[in-house]
Design a binder for these strands. Structure first.
Lengths: 193, 193
DNA sequence: ACTGATGTTAGTACCAACTACTAAATGAGG
DNA sequence: CCTCATTTAGTAGTTGGTACTAACATCAGT
Protein backbone atom coordinates (compact mmCIF):
# COMPACT_ATOMS: atom_id res chain seq x y z
CA UNK A 1 0.00 0.00 0.00
CA UNK A 2 1.32 3.38 -1.05
CA UNK A 3 2.11 5.89 1.63
CA UNK A 4 -0.14 8.82 2.19
CA UNK A 5 0.41 12.29 0.92
CA UNK A 6 1.40 14.93 3.38
CA UNK A 7 -1.98 16.50 3.89
CA UNK A 8 -3.79 13.20 4.23
CA UNK A 9 -1.20 11.85 6.60
CA UNK A 10 -1.45 14.89 8.83
CA UNK A 11 -5.21 14.59 9.09
CA UNK A 12 -4.91 10.95 10.05
CA UNK A 13 -2.17 11.82 12.50
CA UNK A 14 -4.40 14.30 14.28
CA UNK A 15 -7.11 11.72 14.56
CA UNK A 16 -4.75 8.98 15.74
CA UNK A 17 -3.18 11.12 18.40
CA UNK A 18 -6.44 12.47 19.73
CA UNK A 19 -8.00 9.02 20.05
CA UNK A 20 -4.85 7.54 21.59
CA UNK A 21 -2.55 10.09 23.21
CA UNK A 22 -0.10 7.37 24.28
CA UNK A 23 1.56 6.88 20.88
CA UNK A 24 5.27 7.64 20.57
CA UNK A 25 6.76 9.25 17.47
CA UNK A 26 8.49 5.96 16.75
CA UNK A 27 5.25 3.99 16.74
CA UNK A 28 3.58 6.62 14.61
CA UNK A 29 6.46 6.60 12.12
CA UNK A 30 6.02 2.84 11.78
CA UNK A 31 2.28 3.17 11.31
CA UNK A 32 2.63 5.71 8.53
CA UNK A 33 5.79 4.16 7.12
CA UNK A 34 7.72 7.40 7.26
CA UNK A 35 10.75 8.47 9.25
CA UNK A 36 10.57 9.82 12.77
CA UNK A 37 11.66 13.22 11.49
CA UNK A 38 8.65 13.44 9.25
CA UNK A 39 6.35 12.72 12.16
CA UNK A 40 8.10 15.43 14.15
CA UNK A 41 7.74 17.95 11.38
CA UNK A 42 4.08 17.04 11.16
CA UNK A 43 3.57 17.54 14.87
CA UNK A 44 5.38 20.85 14.65
CA UNK A 45 3.14 22.04 11.85
CA UNK A 46 0.00 20.82 13.57
CA UNK A 47 0.98 22.06 17.00
CA UNK A 48 0.67 18.61 18.51
CA UNK A 49 2.68 18.46 21.73
CA UNK A 50 5.02 15.59 22.47
CA UNK A 51 3.93 12.33 24.06
CA UNK A 52 4.79 13.32 27.63
CA UNK A 53 2.97 16.59 27.42
CA UNK A 54 -0.05 14.85 25.96
CA UNK A 55 -0.10 12.33 28.78
CA UNK A 56 0.36 15.04 31.37
CA UNK A 57 -2.52 16.93 29.87
CA UNK A 58 -4.80 13.91 29.94
CA UNK A 59 -3.83 13.16 33.53
CA UNK A 60 -4.57 16.67 34.70
CA UNK A 61 -7.76 17.07 32.76
CA UNK A 62 -9.15 13.76 33.88
CA UNK A 63 -8.41 14.35 37.53
CA UNK A 64 -10.41 17.54 37.25
CA UNK A 65 -13.28 15.77 35.54
CA UNK A 66 -13.29 13.14 38.25
CA UNK A 67 -13.59 15.82 40.88
CA UNK A 68 -16.40 17.59 39.11
CA UNK A 69 -18.20 14.33 38.44
CA UNK A 70 -17.87 12.22 41.52
CA UNK A 71 -16.63 14.40 44.32
CA UNK A 72 -18.94 17.29 43.78
CA UNK A 73 -21.30 17.97 46.59
CA UNK A 74 -24.12 18.88 44.28
CA UNK A 75 -25.20 17.61 40.88
CA UNK A 76 -25.71 20.74 38.86
CA UNK A 77 -24.60 24.21 39.76
CA UNK A 78 -26.35 26.17 42.45
CA UNK A 79 -27.36 29.56 41.11
CA UNK A 80 -29.38 30.92 44.01
CA UNK A 81 -29.88 29.81 47.56
CA UNK A 82 -31.50 30.99 50.75
CA UNK A 83 -30.87 28.45 53.47
CA UNK A 84 -33.87 26.71 54.99
CA UNK A 85 -36.07 28.47 52.46
CA UNK A 86 -35.41 27.84 48.78
CA UNK A 87 -32.70 27.16 46.20
CA UNK A 88 -32.16 27.03 42.44
CA UNK A 89 -29.72 24.95 40.46
CA UNK A 90 -28.81 24.48 36.83
CA UNK A 91 -27.95 21.11 35.33
CA UNK A 92 -26.98 20.76 31.70
CA UNK A 93 -27.73 17.36 30.19
CA UNK A 94 -24.53 16.01 28.64
CA UNK A 95 -23.61 12.93 26.72
CA UNK A 96 -22.89 10.82 29.75
CA UNK A 97 -26.33 11.44 31.20
CA UNK A 98 -28.51 10.14 28.39
CA UNK A 99 -29.58 6.85 26.86
CA UNK A 100 -27.45 6.60 23.75
CA UNK A 101 -30.24 5.32 21.55
CA UNK A 102 -32.66 8.17 22.05
CA UNK A 103 -30.67 10.87 23.89
CA UNK A 104 -33.22 11.07 26.69
CA UNK A 105 -31.78 11.85 30.12
CA UNK A 106 -31.71 8.98 32.58
CA UNK A 107 -34.14 9.66 35.38
CA UNK A 108 -31.63 9.30 38.13
CA UNK A 109 -29.67 12.35 37.04
CA UNK A 110 -32.74 14.53 37.35
CA UNK A 111 -33.40 12.93 40.69
CA UNK A 112 -29.79 13.57 41.71
CA UNK A 113 -30.10 17.23 40.89
CA UNK A 114 -33.25 17.54 42.97
CA UNK A 115 -31.92 15.42 45.80
CA UNK A 116 -28.64 17.24 46.17
CA UNK A 117 -30.43 20.56 46.03
CA UNK A 118 -32.55 19.45 48.95
CA UNK A 119 -29.44 18.51 50.90
CA UNK A 120 -27.86 21.87 50.11
CA UNK A 121 -30.84 24.00 51.09
CA UNK A 122 -30.94 22.63 54.61
CA UNK A 123 -28.65 24.58 56.90
CA UNK A 124 -27.65 21.73 59.20
CA UNK A 125 -24.53 19.60 59.44
CA UNK A 126 -26.38 16.42 58.59
CA UNK A 127 -29.23 16.14 56.11
CA UNK A 128 -30.39 12.82 54.68
CA UNK A 129 -33.20 11.93 52.37
CA UNK A 130 -35.80 9.92 54.21
CA UNK A 131 -38.37 9.45 51.49
CA UNK A 132 -39.53 11.00 48.26
CA UNK A 133 -42.47 11.04 45.96
CA UNK A 134 -41.43 11.96 42.47
CA UNK A 135 -42.79 12.30 38.98
CA UNK A 136 -41.08 12.67 35.61
CA UNK A 137 -43.62 14.74 33.70
CA UNK A 138 -41.82 14.82 30.35
CA UNK A 139 -38.53 13.52 29.00
CA UNK A 140 -35.59 15.89 28.95
CA UNK A 141 -32.92 15.52 26.32
CA UNK A 142 -29.28 15.97 25.51
CA UNK A 143 -28.30 19.63 25.77
CA UNK A 144 -31.29 20.65 27.88
CA UNK A 145 -30.65 23.22 30.59
CA UNK A 146 -32.61 21.96 33.54
CA UNK A 147 -33.48 24.52 36.20
CA UNK A 148 -34.42 22.93 39.47
CA UNK A 149 -36.21 24.82 42.21
CA UNK A 150 -36.46 23.57 45.77
CA UNK A 151 -38.94 25.12 48.22
CA UNK A 152 -38.82 24.25 51.90
CA UNK A 153 -42.45 23.82 52.94
CA UNK A 154 -42.04 22.83 56.55
CA UNK A 155 -39.30 22.19 59.07
CA UNK A 156 -40.09 20.75 62.44
CA UNK A 157 -37.96 18.81 64.87
CA UNK A 158 -35.82 16.72 62.62
CA UNK A 159 -37.89 16.53 59.49
CA UNK A 160 -38.19 18.92 56.58
CA UNK A 161 -40.63 18.76 53.71
CA UNK A 162 -39.30 20.16 50.45
CA UNK A 163 -41.00 20.37 47.09
CA UNK A 164 -38.89 20.45 43.97
CA UNK A 165 -39.83 21.34 40.43
CA UNK A 166 -37.45 21.10 37.48
CA UNK A 167 -38.07 22.87 34.22
CA UNK A 168 -36.59 23.11 30.74
CA UNK A 169 -37.66 26.25 28.89
CA UNK A 170 -40.40 26.86 31.47
CA UNK A 171 -41.85 23.42 30.82
CA UNK A 172 -41.89 21.11 33.79
CA UNK A 173 -39.89 17.91 33.40
CA UNK A 174 -39.78 16.74 37.00
CA UNK A 175 -41.51 17.35 40.28
CA UNK A 176 -41.07 15.80 43.67
CA UNK A 177 -41.85 15.99 47.32
CA UNK A 178 -38.88 15.18 49.54
CA UNK A 179 -38.94 14.31 53.19
CA UNK A 180 -35.55 15.06 54.71
CA UNK A 181 -34.11 14.07 58.06
CA UNK A 182 -31.72 16.55 59.60
CA UNK A 183 -29.78 17.12 62.80
CA UNK A 184 -27.00 19.29 64.13
CA UNK A 185 -24.83 16.27 64.88
CA UNK A 186 -22.21 15.68 62.23
CA UNK A 187 -22.45 11.91 62.41
CA UNK A 188 -25.23 9.64 63.52
CA UNK A 189 -23.05 6.61 62.94
CA UNK A 190 -21.57 6.73 66.43
CA UNK A 191 -24.88 5.67 67.96
CA UNK A 192 -25.39 2.68 65.73
CA UNK A 193 -21.75 1.65 65.21
CA UNK B 1 13.99 23.21 61.35
CA UNK B 2 15.71 19.88 61.53
CA UNK B 3 15.26 17.42 58.73
CA UNK B 4 13.10 14.39 59.20
CA UNK B 5 14.30 10.94 60.08
CA UNK B 6 14.22 8.32 57.40
CA UNK B 7 11.01 6.60 58.43
CA UNK B 8 9.11 9.80 58.96
CA UNK B 9 10.33 11.24 55.68
CA UNK B 10 9.28 8.15 53.78
CA UNK B 11 5.78 8.29 55.21
CA UNK B 12 5.45 11.91 54.23
CA UNK B 13 6.88 11.11 50.82
CA UNK B 14 4.21 8.50 50.19
CA UNK B 15 1.53 10.95 51.18
CA UNK B 16 2.97 13.78 49.08
CA UNK B 17 3.31 11.64 45.99
CA UNK B 18 -0.13 10.12 46.25
CA UNK B 19 -1.83 13.48 46.67
CA UNK B 20 0.21 15.08 43.90
CA UNK B 21 1.70 12.61 41.43
CA UNK B 22 3.27 15.41 39.39
CA UNK B 23 6.24 16.04 41.69
CA UNK B 24 9.74 15.48 40.31
CA UNK B 25 12.54 14.01 42.42
CA UNK B 26 14.23 17.38 42.30
CA UNK B 27 11.24 19.21 43.78
CA UNK B 28 10.84 16.53 46.42
CA UNK B 29 14.50 16.73 47.35
CA UNK B 30 14.08 20.47 47.88
CA UNK B 31 10.96 19.98 49.96
CA UNK B 32 12.64 17.50 52.27
CA UNK B 33 16.04 19.21 52.14
CA UNK B 34 17.84 16.04 51.16
CA UNK B 35 19.71 15.09 48.01
CA UNK B 36 18.06 13.69 44.91
CA UNK B 37 19.76 10.38 45.56
CA UNK B 38 18.07 10.07 48.90
CA UNK B 39 14.69 10.62 47.31
CA UNK B 40 15.49 7.98 44.73
CA UNK B 41 16.56 5.49 47.38
CA UNK B 42 13.31 6.22 49.19
CA UNK B 43 11.25 5.63 46.08
CA UNK B 44 13.12 2.42 45.47
CA UNK B 45 12.40 1.17 48.98
CA UNK B 46 8.78 2.21 48.85
CA UNK B 47 8.20 0.96 45.33
CA UNK B 48 7.09 4.35 44.12
CA UNK B 49 7.47 4.54 40.35
CA UNK B 50 9.08 7.49 38.64
CA UNK B 51 7.23 10.66 37.72
CA UNK B 52 6.43 9.66 34.15
CA UNK B 53 5.05 6.29 35.16
CA UNK B 54 2.93 7.91 37.82
CA UNK B 55 1.49 10.36 35.34
CA UNK B 56 0.86 7.63 32.79
CA UNK B 57 -0.93 5.62 35.44
CA UNK B 58 -3.13 8.53 36.42
CA UNK B 59 -3.96 9.26 32.80
CA UNK B 60 -4.96 5.68 32.07
CA UNK B 61 -6.78 4.99 35.29
CA UNK B 62 -8.75 8.17 35.23
CA UNK B 63 -9.94 7.66 31.68
CA UNK B 64 -11.27 4.30 32.77
CA UNK B 65 -12.95 5.76 35.83
CA UNK B 66 -14.61 8.39 33.68
CA UNK B 67 -16.08 5.70 31.52
CA UNK B 68 -17.29 3.58 34.38
CA UNK B 69 -18.70 6.58 36.20
CA UNK B 70 -20.41 8.62 33.57
CA UNK B 71 -20.96 6.38 30.59
CA UNK B 72 -22.16 3.23 32.26
CA UNK B 73 -25.61 2.09 31.34
CA UNK B 74 -26.38 0.82 34.81
CA UNK B 75 -25.29 1.97 38.24
CA UNK B 76 -24.17 -1.19 39.96
CA UNK B 77 -23.51 -4.55 38.41
CA UNK B 78 -26.39 -6.75 37.37
CA UNK B 79 -25.96 -10.18 38.91
CA UNK B 80 -29.21 -11.86 37.94
CA UNK B 81 -31.98 -10.92 35.60
CA UNK B 82 -35.17 -12.37 34.16
CA UNK B 83 -36.67 -9.88 31.76
CA UNK B 84 -40.10 -8.49 32.61
CA UNK B 85 -39.98 -10.37 35.88
CA UNK B 86 -37.17 -9.56 38.27
CA UNK B 87 -33.53 -8.52 38.54
CA UNK B 88 -30.73 -8.22 41.08
CA UNK B 89 -27.80 -5.84 41.11
CA UNK B 90 -24.81 -5.15 43.32
CA UNK B 91 -23.52 -1.67 44.05
CA UNK B 92 -20.49 -1.09 46.23
CA UNK B 93 -20.44 2.26 48.00
CA UNK B 94 -17.14 3.96 47.20
CA UNK B 95 -15.47 7.18 48.20
CA UNK B 96 -17.08 9.26 45.48
CA UNK B 97 -20.57 8.23 46.55
CA UNK B 98 -20.55 9.43 50.15
CA UNK B 99 -20.69 12.63 52.12
CA UNK B 100 -17.08 13.19 53.17
CA UNK B 101 -17.94 14.27 56.67
CA UNK B 102 -19.84 11.19 57.74
CA UNK B 103 -19.24 8.63 54.97
CA UNK B 104 -22.96 8.08 54.44
CA UNK B 105 -23.97 7.35 50.84
CA UNK B 106 -25.78 10.12 49.03
CA UNK B 107 -29.37 9.11 48.41
CA UNK B 108 -29.28 9.63 44.70
CA UNK B 109 -26.78 6.84 44.19
CA UNK B 110 -29.08 4.35 45.82
CA UNK B 111 -31.90 5.76 43.75
CA UNK B 112 -29.74 5.46 40.63
CA UNK B 113 -29.09 1.80 41.32
CA UNK B 114 -32.80 1.10 41.74
CA UNK B 115 -33.81 3.25 38.80
CA UNK B 116 -31.36 1.76 36.34
CA UNK B 117 -32.30 -1.72 37.47
CA UNK B 118 -35.92 -0.93 36.62
CA UNK B 119 -34.90 0.26 33.17
CA UNK B 120 -32.87 -2.90 32.65
CA UNK B 121 -35.54 -5.35 33.73
CA UNK B 122 -38.02 -4.13 31.14
CA UNK B 123 -37.58 -5.94 27.85
CA UNK B 124 -38.58 -3.10 25.56
CA UNK B 125 -36.56 -0.68 23.44
CA UNK B 126 -37.73 2.32 25.39
CA UNK B 127 -38.32 2.44 29.12
CA UNK B 128 -38.59 5.65 31.09
CA UNK B 129 -39.33 6.34 34.71
CA UNK B 130 -42.69 8.05 35.04
CA UNK B 131 -42.94 8.36 38.78
CA UNK B 132 -41.60 6.82 41.94
CA UNK B 133 -42.35 6.57 45.59
CA UNK B 134 -39.24 5.87 47.56
CA UNK B 135 -37.99 5.53 51.09
CA UNK B 136 -34.49 5.43 52.58
CA UNK B 137 -35.00 3.20 55.57
CA UNK B 138 -31.49 3.45 57.02
CA UNK B 139 -28.24 5.08 55.97
CA UNK B 140 -25.74 3.00 54.04
CA UNK B 141 -22.08 3.70 54.37
CA UNK B 142 -18.74 3.64 52.63
CA UNK B 143 -17.80 0.09 51.70
CA UNK B 144 -21.33 -1.29 51.93
CA UNK B 145 -22.34 -3.87 49.35
CA UNK B 146 -25.84 -2.91 48.39
CA UNK B 147 -27.96 -5.62 46.81
CA UNK B 148 -30.93 -4.25 44.97
CA UNK B 149 -33.87 -6.40 43.94
CA UNK B 150 -36.46 -5.30 41.43
CA UNK B 151 -39.78 -7.18 41.09
CA UNK B 152 -42.13 -6.43 38.21
CA UNK B 153 -45.60 -6.37 39.76
CA UNK B 154 -47.70 -5.49 36.78
CA UNK B 155 -47.31 -4.67 33.11
CA UNK B 156 -50.21 -3.43 31.08
CA UNK B 157 -50.34 -1.36 27.94
CA UNK B 158 -47.45 0.98 28.36
CA UNK B 159 -47.04 1.08 32.09
CA UNK B 160 -45.16 -1.21 34.43
CA UNK B 161 -45.19 -1.20 38.20
CA UNK B 162 -41.96 -2.35 39.79
CA UNK B 163 -41.07 -2.60 43.45
CA UNK B 164 -37.46 -2.38 44.47
CA UNK B 165 -35.82 -3.23 47.76
CA UNK B 166 -32.14 -2.66 48.51
CA UNK B 167 -30.34 -4.36 51.33
CA UNK B 168 -26.97 -4.35 53.04
CA UNK B 169 -26.30 -7.53 55.04
CA UNK B 170 -29.97 -8.48 54.81
CA UNK B 171 -30.98 -5.16 56.34
CA UNK B 172 -33.14 -2.97 54.18
CA UNK B 173 -31.68 0.42 53.32
CA UNK B 174 -34.02 1.47 50.51
CA UNK B 175 -37.38 0.60 49.10
CA UNK B 176 -39.36 2.05 46.29
CA UNK B 177 -42.30 1.67 43.96
CA UNK B 178 -41.52 2.68 40.39
CA UNK B 179 -44.01 3.40 37.65
CA UNK B 180 -42.31 2.93 34.30
CA UNK B 181 -43.47 3.94 30.84
CA UNK B 182 -42.41 1.64 28.04
CA UNK B 183 -42.97 1.16 24.32
CA UNK B 184 -41.51 -0.80 21.44
CA UNK B 185 -40.62 2.37 19.59
CA UNK B 186 -36.99 3.33 20.00
CA UNK B 187 -37.64 7.04 20.14
CA UNK B 188 -40.69 9.00 21.09
CA UNK B 189 -38.88 12.22 20.31
CA UNK B 190 -39.89 12.11 16.65
CA UNK B 191 -43.49 12.84 17.53
CA UNK B 192 -42.76 15.83 19.71
CA UNK B 193 -39.70 17.23 17.95
C1' DA C 1 37.59 6.58 71.57
C1' DC C 2 37.02 2.87 68.13
C1' DT C 3 34.11 -0.13 65.33
C1' DG C 4 30.22 -1.21 62.54
C1' DA C 5 25.97 -0.56 60.80
C1' DT C 6 22.93 2.53 58.80
C1' DG C 7 21.99 6.39 56.25
C1' DT C 8 23.25 10.01 52.95
C1' DT C 9 25.57 12.11 49.16
C1' DA C 10 28.42 12.30 44.92
C1' DG C 11 29.45 10.84 40.61
C1' DT C 12 29.39 8.12 36.38
C1' DA C 13 27.29 5.75 32.48
C1' DC C 14 23.14 4.89 30.33
C1' DC C 15 18.14 5.35 28.76
C1' DA C 16 13.64 7.22 26.40
C1' DA C 17 11.61 10.57 24.13
C1' DC C 18 12.00 14.25 22.94
C1' DT C 19 13.61 19.77 20.77
C1' DA C 20 16.27 22.47 17.67
C1' DC C 21 19.05 22.74 14.19
C1' DT C 22 21.83 21.78 9.70
C1' DA C 23 22.41 19.38 5.67
C1' DA C 24 21.69 16.05 2.29
C1' DA C 25 18.67 13.10 -0.57
C1' DT C 26 14.44 12.30 -3.03
C1' DG C 27 10.23 13.42 -5.60
C1' DA C 28 6.97 15.43 -8.60
C1' DG C 29 5.65 19.23 -11.72
C1' DG C 30 6.48 22.42 -15.05
C1' DC D 1 16.59 19.28 -16.75
C1' DC D 2 15.73 22.35 -13.14
C1' DT D 3 13.40 23.64 -9.08
C1' DC D 4 10.82 23.73 -5.03
C1' DA D 5 8.56 20.94 -1.63
C1' DT D 6 9.08 17.06 0.96
C1' DT D 7 11.50 13.71 3.32
C1' DT D 8 15.34 11.77 5.62
C1' DA D 9 19.77 11.76 8.19
C1' DG D 10 22.55 13.26 11.67
C1' DT D 11 24.27 16.05 15.62
C1' DA D 12 23.95 18.45 20.00
C1' DG D 13 21.31 19.38 24.00
C1' DT D 14 17.23 18.61 27.35
C1' DT D 15 14.41 16.33 31.14
C1' DG D 16 13.75 13.04 34.36
C1' DG D 17 14.83 9.42 35.21
C1' DT D 18 17.66 3.91 36.26
C1' DA D 19 21.57 1.34 37.91
C1' DC D 20 25.56 1.21 39.89
C1' DT D 21 29.97 2.31 42.69
C1' DA D 22 32.30 4.80 46.07
C1' DA D 23 32.87 7.94 49.53
C1' DC D 24 31.29 10.39 53.51
C1' DA D 25 28.33 11.20 57.90
C1' DT D 26 26.08 9.87 62.00
C1' DC D 27 24.92 7.36 65.80
C1' DA D 28 24.85 3.23 69.01
C1' DG D 29 27.13 0.10 71.66
C1' DT D 30 31.02 -1.50 73.82
Amino acid sequence: MARYKKKERQELLLEKVSTDPFLTDELLSEMFEVSIQTIRLDRLELNIPELRERIKHVAREETEKIRSLSLQEVIGEIIDIELNSHALSLFIVEDGHVFQKNKIARGHYLFAQANSLCVAVIDEPLALTKSADIEFTRPSKLGDKVISKAMVEKMDGHTAIITVTSRVDQKMVFKGRFEMYYTDETDEGEKNG
